[in-house]
């Protein structure tokens, strides 16, 4: 037994080393620095609660905190609905494996290209004189260009859904492909309608995939700062934006305190979700 553990440790050593230096140590460092003090141009070691006190007594923090959850929730709803539908179509309506793989790859490819470029690519579409506005005007739906298409909550959530729906499609598709097709035939034989089969057989069996997708989407949206900054034109904020702002002002202790609160929130949320799914078993 002891010998087996040694081989396991040796194989896991590089992984552990990377995670120790670039994950654990940075988290420890952030927690430590969150108690430090700062002047306008430097930071100094101390043990102060000022950063937390300032954060927790400011209205802005709570508004931004709420906004972070709002983005996460709305994005989750849309990615789930779209992701589930796409995965369901691929898993149950496409009949040959070759086509399933081909269409699945088609969905996956954008994920492997640059997020920033994918955000930039909404500009010609959503801008004041963009495709959406000029189409709507020429169709006579509106007289004036809509101002809220770009640089608004709408465009932020649109970009999130655009970037992250794939993280729902992949795990849900993976779980659906493992569903025994005879269960669906059995449901049909027992007289279930399509909707009943969907609701009582497929959705319950797909829950692990939905959970994994949810974990991805929630973590990505709550930790984001660049999409919110770019797509809202710096007009909206989430926790990540607060951190980034402080960093830009060299206020690292205050940034660290916000980071600690964000990290604790995300870990509690993900920890709760993990109770409903055994990730290793579902892969």
């Amino acid at each position: 037994m002891r010998n087996k553990s040694v081989i396991g440790w040796l194989l896991a050593a590089p992984l552990s080393l990377v995670l120790l230096v670039f994950l654990v140590a940075p988290i420890v460092m952030i927690v430590v620095v969150s108690f430090w003090g700062a002047t306008e141009w430097s930071i100094y070691p101390a043990f102060l609660f000022d950063n937390y006190e300032f954060l927790l007594t400011s209205d802005v923090t709570y508004r931004v905190f709420l906004n972070t959850f709002k983005y996460a929730f709305i994005t989750w709803v849309f990615t789930l609905l779209i992701g589930f539908t796409v995965a369901y179509y691929l898993a149950f309506h496409i009949r040959t494996l070759t086509w399933q793989i081909a269409l699945f790859l088609l969905c996956t490819i954008p994920f492997l290209t640059s997020n920033i470029i994918r955000m930039i690519s909404w500009i010609p579409f959503l801008g004041r004189n963009g495709i959406a506005n000029s189409t709507l005007i020429s169709m006579g739906v509106i007289d004036e260009p809509l101002e809220w298409l770009l640089f608004s909550d709408f465009s932020v959530i649109l970009a999130f859904v655009h970037l992250y729906t794939l993280f729902m499609v992949v795990p849900i598709f993976n779980t659906m492909m493992r569903i025994d097709k005879s269960l669906i035939e059995a449901a049909a034989d027992a007289g279930a309608t399509g909707w009943q089969t969907l609701w009582h057989v497929i959705i319950p069996l797909t829950k692990p995939g939905i959970m994994i997708g949810t974990i991805f989407v929630v973590a990505l949206v709550m930790g984001d700062f660049i999409t919110v900054r770019f797509m809202s034109g710096s007009q909206s904020a989430n926790m990540g934006r607060l951190i980034q702002n402080d960093i830009a002002l060299l206020q690292y202790p205050s940034a660290s305190a916000t980071a600690v609160i964000l990290l604790v929130t995300v870990l509690i949320l993900i920890g709760t979700l993990l109770r409903f799914v055994d990730i290793r078993k579902e892969l």
Partner: peptide
């Protein structure tokens, strides 16, 4: 180690940036 891997996946990217930068 498994939970560290999951943490590495879900931790907001800016925290890694900030923490490593600070160290």
């Amino acid at each position: 180690l498994f939970y560290l891997i999951i943490t590495s996946l879900v931790i907001p990217s800016i925290l890694i940036s900030l923490g490593v930068g600070l160290i």
